[in-house]
Design a binder for these strands. Structure first.
Length: 791
DNA sequence: CAACCTCGAGTTCA
DNA sequence: CTCGAGGTTG
């Protein structure tokens, strides 16, 4: 080795040591971590490797030479008679196999090979804080943190506040026993605590993550604060034992601990050999997101205690155990830009463009920042280093900015103009979202509107993705949704050729004279196929504000025909349950725009066939009388009661519009109501609305006698919620079948929910159901029920 | 008018 | 899946 490279190695080692010291100090002493675990691990491993190949570089104060950090002086020190161990880590299957091979090799030297795979006690690796609990004659006398493994801090009063730590053991426990385990904060408690903290307007500090929360809570000097934190405990090992003995294996020891009243996780078990351990790793990994607490891997411990003793230690890590870690769910990266995205409704959503980073199994490059408030809360700026998490769900989020990094430029602000169309971006009073005011003149909104139209749950045009829509719009083939139905195969191919030319992406095969046409043929076919549709899908696909699937369905059910719906004044729309003033006005406003009416004309003229037209619902007819309708118009001071009073004297909108002032006085209304009504009637706009109501009410066709009344199903009046993945049915099929039996299928669980159908990997909805004591069906029960109903 | 329940809209990656 | 906001209800 040359002089030069050896000095570089020693410099790097010194640098790593400094970084690790600093990080460890901030983490353990200041409770303010600056780097995530994965990074710390990576630095530590690098240093370990360096020291392994250059043993002369090992210094006595190297972070590799101890497990944790200095205990803070605020707590009394406790020496661990039996040191608290730290485990070697494995990050891949190869490393696990290597670990097991090492054990075998070592044992083979000493004793004859007994054949068969080794048995391991397998456990989740809880993401919390390791502690030791001392019981004397069955009574909890002292608890300490791990500290550096040799010496920890006495946090007995804090530990006493944790309900899952027994203050007295059951049965015949040894006279003195030290139980080791992990204090952690369950996710639900963490969320609940933070929700309260958020509501406290900054008075209570937010907890960063459950693990930090657990560590921080235990290190409170005032145990009353600890008591307010939702902490829990799992036992997983034993230290000192006097006046008693333990079983021959670790798994039996855990069982004993459970007998003595200590909480041991249900997830512990045993596994044989590499294969068994890896199976366990996968099984626990699959459950990771739905567990009620955080884990960062699993631990394999050789089950037989005698063999453990034989294998012994390397430094402070045992040869007989290893932690197999999951891919990190948190990483740090830098914010390269903060862009804004314009949605279908014009909503301007800030998005962080991140330096690509591998988190929880995928590479993340984007993370939504939701809105300007969120950006301000986090104070994220371009150039900042941030922690990115891929939590329980799939969607990455920026957790926080790492303090002490050189800050980027000025605080981020929502731009005043849309980056796509240049229109003003406006945030309405009291709203969280800012919106581009460009409407359909904004290219981004136009593309999103067409994309929505083509969506599976809307017109279901398969193969029409965002990219094609963008190109079709940019190159002038598509101006509105109606244009979709005049696209020809030739148009599509020409568009593709021009787009490729523009981007310089013309494939070699095309240059060679071959043109790929299959995609275009499929798309034309898909557009063709979408022509036949239902009224619900059609209404939904128009992308009217506030009209999603369920509102579209209500409209279809109540009014029956697009030609009726497209001309209704909002007070009549408001008669439909679940449609209030805001939504009704949005629908009316949509249809009041000539451009939108023209698009609908075009669509219908080009052969959109709505297959399920019918007469208005009978329930609607009953509500169309003058008094009910008048109450919906929202004339100040004219409530339902007053409307009724007015209606007894004046029997129609026409009569009301024609009524002289003297007539209004004669009705006997209170003076303020009279004035309000007269003032209302004096305005041309209002008179126009009333006239429209009058006309629409008389023009709505009568109900078809006897039609549309649905047969009563066995699930009438029941509300069902589906969650998780079903095997035999898709969610949509299950929904359709349940609805056919009269059930209402809702999206979220509440007290009103009759029962929840939980498939595999059910998430928070299942928790909610259990919390509220709502019945939960598994898929088998649902299938059996459906069979019983003959479906 | 507050509490509760729904619905709509937006979101990431393979 | 989650948040925000609209609608209904006591």
């Amino acid at each position: 080795m040359s002089e030069n490279s050896s000095s570089r190695v020693s410099e790097r080692a010194a640098e790593l040591r400094a970084q690790l010291h600093e990080a460890s100090h901030r983490y353990h002493v200041l409770d303010e971590p600056t780097i995530v675990d994965a990074e710390y691990d990576a630095l530590m491993r690098e240093l370990e490797t360096l020291e392994a190949t250059h043993p002369e570089l090992v210094t006595s104060d190297s972070p590799t030479q101890r497990v944790g950090a200095h205990p803070s002086s605020a707590f009394a020190e406790v020496r661990h008679e039996v040191p608290m161990l730290s485990l070697a880590n494995a990050f891949s299957e190869e490393e696990v196999a290597e670990f097991m091979r090492r054990i075998r090799d070592r044992l083979d030297q000493d004793i004859s090979d007994q054949g068969g795979p080794l048995t391991f006690s397998v456990e989740p690796k809880f993401d919390g804080l390791a502690i030791s609990l001392r019981y004397e004659n069955g009574v909890f006398v002292r608890g300490a943190t791990r500290g550096d493994g040799e010496t920890g801090e006495d946090v007995t009063p804090n530990l006493r506040t944790i309900k899952s730590i027994p203050l007295r053991l059951h049965g015949k426990a040894p006279a003195v026993i030290e139980v080791r385990g992990e204090v952690y904060m369950p996710r639900a408690g963490f969320e609940k605590y933070n929700a309260a903290a958020r509501a406290s307007d900054g008075k209570i500090k937010l907890l960063i993550n459950p693990r930090n929360a657990a560590a921080g809570s235990l290190r409170q000097l005032d145990a009353r604060i600890t008591a307010k934190r939702p902490l829990a405990f799992f036992a997983y090992a034993v230290g000192v034992v006097e006046g008693g003995s333990l079983p021959a294996t670790h798994s039996q020891t855990l069982r004993k601990l459970r007998e003595w009243g200590l909480p041991v996780s249900d997830l512990v078990g045993t596994a044989d050999g590499v294969e068994g351990c890896l199976d366990y790793y996968k099984r626990i990994g699959a459950q990771r997101d739905i567990l009620p607490f955080d884990i960062d891997g699993v631990v394999y411990k050789l089950d037989d205690l005698a063999t453990q003793r034989e294998l012994g230690f390397v430094g402070r890590t045992p040869r007989w155990a290893i932690a197999h870690k999951f891919p990190a769910q948190e990483q740090t990266t830098t914010v390269e830009a903060i862009d804004i995205n314009i949605g279908r409704t014009g909503a301007a959503t800030p998005t962080a463009r991140l330096k690509p980073v591998f988190v929880g199994g995928v590479t993340v490059t984007n993370a939504t920042l939701h809105n300007a408030d969120q950006v301000a809360r986090l104070d994220v700026r371009v150039g900042d280093t941030v922690i990115v998490r891929r939590a329980g769900d799939v969607i990455p989020e920026v957790v926080r900015v790492v303090a002490e990094q050189p800050r980027g430029a000025a605080p981020w602000q929502m731009p005043a103009h849309c980056p796509i169309c240049g229109s003003a971006i406006v945030r309405e009073e009291g709203e969280v979202v800012a919106r581009c005011t460009g409407g359909l003149t904004c290219a981004a909104q136009r593309v999103q509107a067409i994309f929505h139209f083509a969506a599976r749950r809307a017109m279901d045009i398969d193969g029409l993705g965002e990219r094609y829509i963008e190109d079709l719009c940019d190159l002038g083939y598509l101006h509105s949704i109606a244009d979709l139905y005049k696209l020809s195969l030739a148009d599509l191919l020409e568009m593709k050729r021009r787009a490729d030319e523009r981007d310089g992406t013309t494939p070699e095969t095309v240059k060679a004279g071959k043109v790929a046409t299959k995609w275009a043929e499929n798309l034309i076919e898909a557009i063709e196929h979408s022509r036949r549709t239902t009224l619900t899908r059609f209404l939904y696909s128009l992308g009217i504000q506030h009209v999603g699937e369920s509102t579209a369905k209500a409209l279809a059910l109540w009014f029956g025909e697009i030609d009726i719906i497209r001309h209704l004044p909002w007070p009549i729309l408001k008669l439909v349950p679940d449609i209030g003033g805001e939504v009704a006005r949005a629908i009316d406003a949509f249809f009041s725009q000539d451009g939108n009416q023209r698009v609908i004309d075009d669509l219908l003229a080009r052969g959109i066939a709505i297959t399920d037209t019918h007469a208005p619902a009978p329930k609607l007819r009953a509500k169309l009388d003058f008094a009910s309708l008048l109450a919906e118009v929202e004339i100040p001071k004219v409530t339902g009661k007053r409307a009724l009073q007015i209606a007894t004297a004046i029997d129609s909108f026409d009569a009301l519009l024609a009524a002289k002032a003297t007539v209004l006085v004669a009705i006997g209304l209170p003076v303020d109501t009279q004035e309000s009504l007269q003032h209302y009637l004096a305005q041309a706009e209002n008179r126009k609305l009333l006239a429209r109501c009058a006309r629409a009410a008389t023009q709505l066709p009568a109900a078809i006698p006897g039609a549309a009344s649905q047969a009563a199903g066995p699930l009438d009046g029941q509300t069902v919620v589906l969650t998780g993945t079903l095997v035999a049915l898709t969610r949509d099929e299950a929904k359709a079948k349940l609805e056919a039996l009269g059930a209402k299928v809702a999206g979220s669980v509440s007290k009103k929910t009759s029962f929840v159908v939980a498939g595999s990997e059910a998430g928070s909805k299942l928790d909610k159901a259990q919390e509220l004591g709502v019945d939960v069906w598994d898929e088998a029960r649902l299938m059996e029920f459906l069979r019983g109903q003959g479906s």
